[in-house]
């Protein structure tokens, strides 16, 4: 039986006193990948930042596992079971890969750190022989793996990903999406903002299209890919591939 991991209800949030998203809603169920797509400036990243306490939430509510986190600070959310991976600058460049992973355990130590690390290295085998290398020396795709690995080290139930494929080569795009499916299958729910909308919708269990800070469309990934209006306006037109 699935239950709601995250329930964003009528959320208005933004920067300072300026609202960017208004009366937004979004839900993430257990073991789901939920994708937020939409044009630039639609408020996609603002939604993620609001959930993670990184900007000002003005009204509405954010419920994580039946508990309101509307007033919770970022430092309180990590121990509760939410991790986040920013779009850029998402690794500590002068720390080694292993140290980056370790940092993920400091705010919320997992039950068995060795087992968690082994599980993450199984997910991202590319990192196994780079543990002692500085994260800043890695390629974009490998950095993304370190960033997601760091977020997974605290054994979260939900991770928030802000454009995990930004700046990656098309070859790496598929690799990262494939890894995200594996992360989901390992029992971690994902709320993700993504510019590569078509590919993201293919792996999405559910998705929301945001326009001008408001919900415009929603449905399963497949439904949105089939929706003519969504295709024309946000997916570059053409038939779904």
């Amino acid at each position: 039986m699935s239950y709601k991991i995250l329930d964003v209800q009528n959320l208005t949030a933004g920067y300072g006193k300026l609202p960017i998203i208004e009366n937004m809603h979004a839900k993430v169920d257990d073991g789901q990948i939920v994708v937020i797509v939409g044009p630039n400036g639609a408020g996609k990243s603002t939604l993620l930042k609001s959930v993670f306490g990184l900007n000002s939430r003005m009204s509405g509510d954010i419920v994580f596992e039946s508990q309101s986190i509307f007033d919770a600070k970022t430092s309180e959310l990590v121990p509760m079971g939410i991790s986040a991976v920013p779009q850029s600058h998402n690794v500590f460049p002068t720390l080694t890969v292993e140290e980056n992973l370790d940092v993920g355990t400091f705010a919320a130590p997992p039950k068995d750190k060795t087992a968690t690390k082994a599980k993450i290295l199984q997910l991202f085998p590319d990192l196994k022989d780079k543990l002692r290398q500085q994260a800043g020396e890695l390629s974009g795709g490998q950095r993304q793996m370190v960033a997601v690995g760091r977020a997974l080290m605290s054994d979260p139930r939900l991770i928030l990903l802000d454009e995990p494929t930004a700046g990656l080569s098309p070859a790496y795009l598929e690799v990262i999406f494939d890894l995200l499916l594996q992360v989901r299958d390992s029992g971690v729910s994902i709320l993700m903002v993504e510019q590569n909308a078509k590919q993201a919708l293919r792996i999405a269990d559910y998705a929301y299209v945001l326009v001008n800070g408001k919900n415009a469309y929603e449905g399963t990934g497949a439904e949105l890919l089939e929706n003519d209006e969504v295709r024309k306006s946000f997916l570059g037109g053409g038939a779904p591939k």
């Binding site: 430092s75 920013p86 690794v91 500590f92 720390l95 140290e99 370790d102 940092v103 400091f106």
Partner: peptide, 23 residues
């Protein structure tokens, strides 16, 4: 040590350190 690595992490990127929940 955990505090040593935390200090290096904060020095590297304070915004990311805060996202990682470091105090």
């Amino acid at each position: 040590t955990q505090m040593g690595k935390t200090m290096r992490a904060v020095s590297d990127d304070p915004a990311l350190a805060s996202v990682a929940g470091l105090d």
